[in-house]
Each structure stands twice: as C-alpha cells, then as structure tokens.
C-alpha cells in the first residue's frame, strides 16, 4: 500500500514538474532531436552561410528559442541497452547452463553462485570508474583501431567509422574520432553490470526445468548441446523475463553510463561515437537546470524513463512469475 502511494507520488511529482514541457512540446518531444538549454542570439546567415546585413549595414541578429527533444536520449538508451543485451545474453545463458548442468559435478555451483551474486551487488559507480579509467582508454587505443582495421573494407559498414557533417553549407565526410568514451563503451559496461542478474535469474529458471525434459531428449540420443537447447526452449518464457530484468536495469542505469558514454546529445549511428541516454542526461543536467522549459523537459524525460522501466519490469515479472501460477 505504502509502495503504491510512493509510486503514485513519484508519478504525480514528475508529471506536475513536466507539465509545462508537456503542454509546450506535446508528443513532438518524443520525435525531435534538438536540445538547446539557453536561447541563442546569432547573426542570421543565408543558405550558403553568408552573414546577412540589414539596410543600415548592421548584422541581422536572430534569436533561436530553447528547444528540447528526447529522441537522441531515447535512441541512446535503446542502443546502449541493446548493445548490452547483445554482449550479455549469450554469456549469461552460457553461464547459467554451466551453473545448472556442469558446475554441480565439480562442486562449483555454490562458490560461483556466490560470486555472481557478489558481482550483482557491486555499486554501479564502481563499474563506471572502471569503465572510465580502464575500458574507455583500452577501447580508444586498442579495440577501436583494431575493429576499424578489420571492418573498414567490409562493404556496408562505412557508417561505423565515417560521418557526414554539414558545416556552413558545406557537406563533407569525416572520420569519427576514436575517443573511447562512446556508445560501445557504455554498452560493454552495461553488459558487465547486467550479466550477474541475468545469469542468476536464468539459473533459477533453468533449475526449474523438469528432469524428465532433459532425460527425454538425452534418451533420444541428443548431445549435451542439443539437450541444453531443449532446456532453453522449455524455459524460454522465464529466460525472456530474465533478459527483460537485465534490460530494465540497463535502460535505467545512470552514473556508470554518464561516465563512459561521452554525453553527446545527438544521434549518430556509429557505436564508436559518443551518445547520451535518458538517465545519463538527467544525471548530467539535473543538478543545475537552466531557465524556463529546461527543468520541465528534464522532468518529461524522467517520466518517459519511469514509464518505460515500469513496463519492462511488469512484463518481465509477468513472464518469470506470472505464468507459473
């Protein structure tokens, strides 16, 4: 009951805070990319970039209003979380299979299980620090260049390493600098963070697979891998729930991501370029919100994040717990 009141109050506070932005931007907030905290005054230029003058020879100054759109952060959240799942899910399912089917034979199930739960309890800031000081430089100096050399000549992958920019009417292609702090780095740090939770939930789900299912496939001559595949298949809805729990954590993760993602509020398809997630945007800007619509817009982003995480969690719980009953 108290929890419901708490949840309701969070929603109400966010909604009230976001109301000015909701009224001002409406649903367009979800599909626009600009994020201009302050009004900008600048000389007016024409299409080819020439500064315009008025009749008296004075520069014409245009005023560009504040603008806020959540699309880049939603994109960043989606991409960083997807990358995290891409790396974490195969590893987590493999580890869970190991824990359920092999580890007991070597009396390793308990110690490794303990280790995994321990990993799950490491505060995210610690992962962030590690990502910032170890992973990001390593990506910048080794993995990034290596992958570029490897994939540069693969047709259809040029977008990973080059971007098209328009500066003052000039369109040119330039190489994306390997800065280390990037979408990929965030995806990797998130993958490491969600690995334990997906592993431990998957382990419990796989443990609940009836013996007869595994024996049934083995008795038909299935190999270890084929019978493991059968286990995964049997437990698929529970495993999907485990993945959703991991996804919810990845999408909501704040500090670690803010430290390694590079904090660039723009959509860039390359995983080597910096980005921004909803949560990292909030962490970066909430301590010093600007004037007028900035604060309501941040509230709006927070509301979107909350609704999204709740949805993930509800779907995940329903898949893991609800279906068994």
């Amino acid at each position: 009951m108290l929890l419901l009141v708490l949840l309701a109050s969070v929603v109400v506070v966010l909604f009230k805070g976001a109301l000015p932005a909701i009224e001002h931007f409406g649903a367009k907030f979800l599909v626009t990319s600009e994020w201009r905290v302050n009004e900008v005054e600048r000389p007016l230029r024409d299409a080819v970039g020439k500064i315009q003058f008025d009749a008296d020879g004075e520069q014409i100054i245009e005023t560009i209003p504040q603008a806020f759109g959540a699309l880049p952060t939603m994109y960043g959240t989606a991409v960083s979380s997807s990358l995290a799942l891409l790396f974490a899910v195969p590893l987590a399912l493999g580890s869970a299979l190991f824990l359920v089917r092999l580890a007991p034979k070597f009396k390793l199930a308990a110690p490794i299980g303990f280790l995994i739960e321990f990993l799950a309890s490491i505060p995210s800031i610690a992962y962030g620090v590690w990502g910032l000081f170890v992973l990001a430089p390593f990506l910048q100096s080794h993995i990034g260049p290596f992958v570029r050399d490897l994939l540069l000549d693969v047709p259809g992958l040029r977008w990973m390493f080059f971007e098209t920019v328009t500066i003052a009417g000039q369109t040119s292609e330039r190489e994306i600098p390997m800065v280390g702090r990037s979408m990929l780095c965030a995806g990797l740090v998130l993958a490491i963070m969600i690995l334990p939770i997906i592993t431990s939930v998957s382990r419990d789900v796989l443990r609940a697979v009836p013996r007869t299912q595994v024996e049934g496939s083995l008795a038909l001559g299935a190999t270890w891998w084929q019978s493991s595949w059968m286990m995964l298949k049997y437990a698929r809805s529970g495993l999907f729930g485990a993945v959703m729990l991991g996804l919810a954590r990845a999408a909501g993760e704040t500090m670690a991501v803010a430290m390694v993602i590079g904090n660039a509020n723009a959509i860039n398809p390359s995983p080597f370029s910096p980005g921004q997630t909803m949560a990292s945007l909030l962490a970066n800007e909430f301590n010093d919100p600007g004037e007028k619509l900035h604060r309501p817009s941040l509230m709006y982003v927070a509301l979107i994040l909350l609704v999204m995480s709740l949805t993930f969690n509800i779907v995940a719980r329903w898949l893991v717990v609800g279906k068994k009953q």
Binding site: Q213, S217, A219, L220, A222
Partner: peptide
C-alpha cells in the same frame, strides 16, 4: 553413448512431450 541411446528408445513414467 549418444549412438547407444539412438538405438534404444525410451518412454518415461510421466509423459514428457517437448514444448513444441
């Protein structure tokens, strides 16, 4: 062992159809 089990069919106490 895999080959052995392929040559010998088995039916269990409780029906255990696969989830497919």
């Amino acid at each position: 062992v895999i080959n052995l089990r392929k040559r010998v069919g088995m039916v269990f106490q409780k029906p255990n159809p696969f989830p497919m």
